[in-house]
C-alpha cells in the first residue's frame, strides 16, 4: 500500500491539521461564509475524496493479492478512514468558538495514524 497516494494523503492531512491549529490559536471560529473556514473545509473535502480513492484501490488490491493478509482488519481501516472526517466536520460545525477548528485538528491528526496502520498491516506477513 505504500505509494504516492497514501504519502500525499498523509501530508494533506497534516497540512489541514496545521491550518486548523492556526485557526484555533488565532481564535477564528468556523463560519460558513468566512474564507479561512471555507478553505479548511474545502481541503478536508479534497482529503476525503482522496481517502475514498485509497479505500477503493485498497479493496481492489486486497482482493487481487496472493499474500497473507488480515483482510478483516485491513478492510476495517479502509472503511474507518472514511468515517472520521465527516463526523469531525459535523461535530466541529456545531461549535461557534475557536474549539470548532480544534475538533478538525483532532480529526485530521487521526488520518495519518490510520494510513500508517494500513501500511503496517499491508506490509506484515509478506
Amino acid at each position: 500500500m505504500i505509494d504516492a497516494l497514501s504519502t500525499t494523503l498523509t501530508y494533506v492531512a497534516l497540512g489541514a491539521a496545521l491550518w486548523a491549529l492556526v485557526l484555533l490559536i488565532a481564535d477564528k471560529p468556523l463560519q460558513p461564509l468566512r474564507r479561512s473556514s471555507l478553505a479548511v473545509l474545502g481541503l478536508l473535502a479534497l482529503l476525503e475524496l482522496g481517502l475514498l480513492v485509497q479505500t477503493v484501490l485498497g479493496f481492489v488490491r486486497m482482493f487481487g493479492t496472493d499474500r497473507e493478509l488480515d483482510k478483516l482488519t485491513f478492510g476495517g481501516y479502509l472503511v474507518g478512514s472514511l468515517v472520521v472526517l465527516p463526523l469531525a466536520v459535523f461535530w466541529a460545525l456545531a461549535e461557534r468558538s475557536r474549539w470548532g477548528p480544534g475538533v478538525l485538528l483532532v480529526g485530521c491528526l487521526a488520518i495519518p495514524v490510520l494510513i500508517l496502520r494500513l501500511n503496517q498491516i499491508w506490509s506484515t506477513n509478506v
Partner: peptide
C-alpha cells in the same frame, strides 16, 4: 459539550470507534 469539551468528546469518539472495531 462546548469549548475544550468538544475536543475531549471528539477524542473519546475516536477511541470508541477504534476500540469497538
Amino acid at each position: 459539550r462546548s469549548g475544550p469539551g468538544r475536543i475531549l468528546i471528539a477524542v473519546y469518539a475516536i477511541f470508541a470507534l477504534a476500540a469497538t472495531a
